[in-house]
Write a protein that binds this DNA or RNA. Sequence first.
DNA 1: GCAGATAATTGCGTGGCACGCACTCTGTCG
DNA 2: CGACAGAGTGCGTGCCACGCAATTATCTGC
Lengths: 219, 219
Amino acid sequence: MTTSQLADLANQVQSYGTSGLREQKRAVVRQALSRAALDLALQRGLERVLVPDIAARAGVSPRTFNNYFASKEEAVVAPAFDRIARILAAFRERSSAEPLWTSITEAIVSQFRPGDSEGGNALRHARLISDSPALWVEQLRAYAAIEVLLADAIAQRLGVATDEDLFPRLVAAMAISASRVAFEHWLSGDRDETFTTMLSRALDQVGGAFPAQPGHRAR
Amino acid sequence: MTTSQLADLANQVQSYGTSGLREQKRAVVRQALSRAALDLALQRGLERVLVPDIAARAGVSPRTFNNYFASKEEAVVAPAFDRIARILAAFRERSSAEPLWTSITEAIVSQFRPGDSEGGNALRHARLISDSPALWVEQLRAYAAIEVLLADAIAQRLGVATDEDLFPRLVAAMAISASRVAFEHWLSGDRDETFTTMLSRALDQVGGAFPAQPGHRAR
DNA sequence: GCAGATAATTGCGTGGCACGCACTCTGTCG
DNA sequence: CGACAGAGTGCGTGCCACGCAATTATCTGC
């Protein structure tokens, strides 16, 4: 993965920067487009949703759609990128005194606790994504994005450089992969246990590989 | 990830099934298309390569291209899917008596030993993929494919079911993720050490999390 | 080895999509 | 309030995936 790519992916993570009228409107339109795409996809299946449909439902011109998203898939998966921002924020707020893996685990798990936010819609959303190859690939990009950003945050906390030490990337990859596996497993199973439980278990199981504190040894 | 998806991805992994004239010719055309796509992409950049160009170079009609690959990106990344088959075969050939993680590590590393097969072309290929967002995403699909297939092979060896026990998926994900991180890190760095060295180190570092033998404990 | 079944190649046509460009409208800021 | 940056929009272009049906090549059983 190249520098340019990192930038591309990172830029999709909501910046929530200035709060001028302009940026505010832009955020509204973006969310409207994303919601429109999701709603339509949920009721018809994404293949039967055309970009102009989405634009129309969001009250905007078709051409405008592509000023926000490069594809309808990107629009549907956009909320995942938002969650990334929240996970990162949660991680950064954790004390550096606590074991690294604990910080990571808690940061991730905390973003799923609020009880399947937004009603059962979240579950349908998840199923939609994992059932559509195109959406699922788009989701992979989200995982890749958070992996890189999380690695940066970890490196920052440990005071090492990501391009010299592969430890941060490794730890981030393990955390994200474990989350992804837990998620997919939970989605496909009978789910006699909650997602957060399964998530925690997967993370715990993987966490044993890594030393609790900076005294790691990767190059 | 859904059953249909697993099938889709798995089907891209070369089966090398029957050796009739038919399958043989098909394999030749497939490889010709893949090579053509790669060569053209290397000299012009993938954006400047059109599907008809590839088809022409492979001596086949444009329409035929899509009977083999769904996109030019898929054609360029196809060799990665071939390597998957080899890794899986290598894993299955390892003795069940040896520790699981050792089998996995050796199976993966063994497919990179032959000294950057096919001349320095492999490195250029790798850079091409990691520099192009479209190709890079396609590569993610390959990683996902092998993760699933490897998980199945692991589950088979351990005698558990992938839909009941998430341990195989977890182990597979860790192995593949570590490999991916090592690869990306190696590609972006000065590479004062060989890829296989870095790969082994990453895998070793992660392997500590898992028990050596079936006596695991995941659900 | 031949006839019917099966599968691959190809040409044509269609629907869709990403994006460049130029123009307009609307916030923004001194 | 006036100039400027940036966002929305219409139009046009090039490319692409894929359905369909006809043709040709391979396979299989007798």
